[in-house]
Write a protein that binds this DNA or RNA. Structure first.
Lengths: 202, 202
DNA sequence: CGCAAGATTGCACTGTGTGCAAGAAAAGTG
DNA sequence: CACTTTTCTTGCACACAGTGCAATCTTGCG
């Protein structure tokens, strides 16, 4: 009974080493100036092996745990079915984002790199596209609609993705001085209220 | 008085030829299977020249007119200042999307390629990021808020981008059987209403 | 015509990402 | 433990993206 098995453990180690090397090197020189060769060297692995774990530097930086199955769907479906969709999504998103706060320093650093590199934000969206599809599917399941044909699930999925993105950007700009859950609630409140014109510049 | 001048006209011709070649070849083989070399050859220019016009195949496909200054900002600011932001944005977006209907076949084809290639949708978002920044800035100007610090402009800019994206996807799925303006209105109505749960599956 | 501005092109070079096959390491089996 | 199978790693070769530079050609204009 070796549990996960030696093999799987080494694999996870390598993945973590690659992700860490990417984060360090990107913090030092900016992601654009870092080559996969350098990352692999720092992680003690060959160039070729890097691509056994990640499809590119961006993925290594933004999705350090690898692809994985995604957790939003189950979480959304686990909420009280009596809740309106937006309220259920809010609860599910709070659970999702809790991960980020547990590894705050690293994620703040990643957000810094995203803000700097300017070409990474779309990449984040790209990776977030998976999450968006997942949200769309989960919303469709909850409302009994068709994820492909109906407007509502696609729109809610996309908009929730936006809300998360904007929230993370604000969290970063405030350097974590404001709690992430509160920022998320502000964004979702504005959405649920129909994005009314703001009172006036405070 | 040659008007635009021969030089500028030739430049536009070359740009148009490259964009058209990209669209044709992508329609034939899928964008991923097309090389810049092929595109340049079909347009009758050298490989190197392609990059004088576009930063890559994706831009040639999704932004055939080149970068350009962006028109949403002026359009939003040209709306009646008494209008709520969302209503003004709706009017401005209708003007923006009118372009697509004037060249319907080509844009439907582009949307098909986006749907097929699966790696292009994020690229669309990437190019749309410019538009999103523009929308954010315009909204901030209209509300007298700070595009950098305040939640509202960033959220509205991002969400409008989502709404456009989802609307285009639906328009494509319906193969133009529904008028684009109506689809956009449906999405914006849902947003303005605060994304209430849908009635029930019709 | 003849010069200046600007566009096109070829060349060389770095880096990405992939397919393939050989080799090393772990897991399973008697 | 020895042997096989499975899985991961690695090197090699390759096609393509994208960029800097310098030479060359074209257009605009005096």
């Amino acid at each position: 009974m070796t549990g996960p098995g030696l093999r799987a453990r080494k694999k996870q180690d390598t993945r973590a080493a690659l992700a860490a090397a990417t984060l360090e090197l990107a913090a030092e020189h900016g992601l654009a100036a870092v080559t996969v060769e350098q990352i692999a060297a720092r992680a003690g692995v060959s160039y070729r092996t890097f691509f056994n774990y990640f499809s590119g530097k961006e993925e290594a930086l933004l999705r350090p745990g690898g692809a994985g199955p995604g957790t939003f769907g189950p979480r959304l479906l686990g909420q009280d079915p009596a809740l309106p969709v937006l309220a259920a999504a809010r609860a599910a998103l709070h659970e999702e984002l809790a991960v980020l706060e547990s590894d705050r320093a690293a994620w703040q650093l990643r957000l810094t790199l995203i803000a700097d590199d300017e070409a990474l934000l779309p990449r984040l969206v790209e990776l977030g596209a998976t999450g968006e599809r997942e949200m769309t599917a989960a919303v469709a399941a909850r409302t009994g609609q068709d994820a492909e044909r109906d407007l509502y699930p696609a729109l809610v999925g996309a908009v929730l993705g936006c809300a998360v993105r904007v929230t993370l950007a604000r969290w970063h700009r405030l350097e974590g001085r404001a709690p992430l859950p509160r920022l998320l609630d502000e964004a979702l409140d504005a959405l649920a209220a129909g994005l009314p014109d703001p009172a006036s510049p405070s």
